[in-house]
Design a protein around this nucleic acid. Sequence first.
DNA 1: CCTGAAACACTCACACC
DNA 2: GGTGTGAGTGTTTCAGG
Lengths: 152, 152
Amino acid sequence: MQFDETDKKLLQYLQEDCKQTTKELSYKLGLSVTAVYERIKKLENSGVISKYVALVDKTKIDKKFLILCHVKLIQHKKEYLMQFEKEVLNLKEVTECFHVSGDYDYILKICLKDMDDYRNFMVTKLTTLQHIASTHSSFTISEVKHTTEIIL
Amino acid sequence: MQFDETDKKLLQYLQEDCKQTTKELSYKLGLSVTAVYERIKKLENSGVISKYVALVDKTKIDKKFLILCHVKLIQHKKEYLMQFEKEVLNLKEVTECFHVSGDYDYILKICLKDMDDYRNFMVTKLTTLQHIASTHSSFTISEVKHTTEIIL
DNA sequence: CCTGAAACACTCACACC
DNA sequence: GGTGTGAGTGTTTCAGG
């Protein structure tokens, strides 16, 4: 799909706040309501906008404890990778998981309540996954920046 | 703020899809439209729901290149930390930044187009930040999991 | 916590340029 | 590509139980 400058602005606005009405957006973009409506539909149908979600403040729901966990597998066999990834998808505490180059194979972002919760998660969930050679956890002291907006 | 089971379910639904009408939600929760409306307002006003956003598919807008960059500062002086964090906030390519414990001080998630874009970003932006001792970048081979939903 | 009603705003299809 | 209209549907508030 091709974007013009108007599409880019529109995407930026919707990434900031998706509850704006097409009326407000039409004013900001200098277009008619219908024109904005059709551009939004095009972005949705092409899959550029994948979903609309509510973002929750972690500090208000007792999930202040953020861990970045580096994981190394015992071998880089396709079968091992696939099984590990499949199992990670089912761990709801893991909000992000990247397969990365370098010393470790995966970096996981894990959202928990406190140190007890962490201990429990490691013992009963993460370390029960198969094919793990070693893990290295970094505790986050503060979340300096966290945005879902991607600049175009 | 205190949540009951209904609030938790409501938050889960809104984290999955915030464009559902209160009517749909009232059906799923077995409440009246007004009751759901008031619960949502309470969650918004208390700051539990921080914002509503559109999520964009990175692969469709030419930002497939994801980097996790570990940064170490030359010293842990408060002044250095604060200046670094302030500068990072202004880098729009950086979507997440965590101050972490361990060998490195910060882990940054950086969203770019390709290797050329990466090279350009490192030379003209990241390495021009002050007080950096060293950096270590991991390229992400694949984004195994990425959700904004936090389980309650 | 519910229902019902009323006022208002928005969505979205349609006709048209 | 764009605009304007209008019916239908949603939101939001306010009674009263």
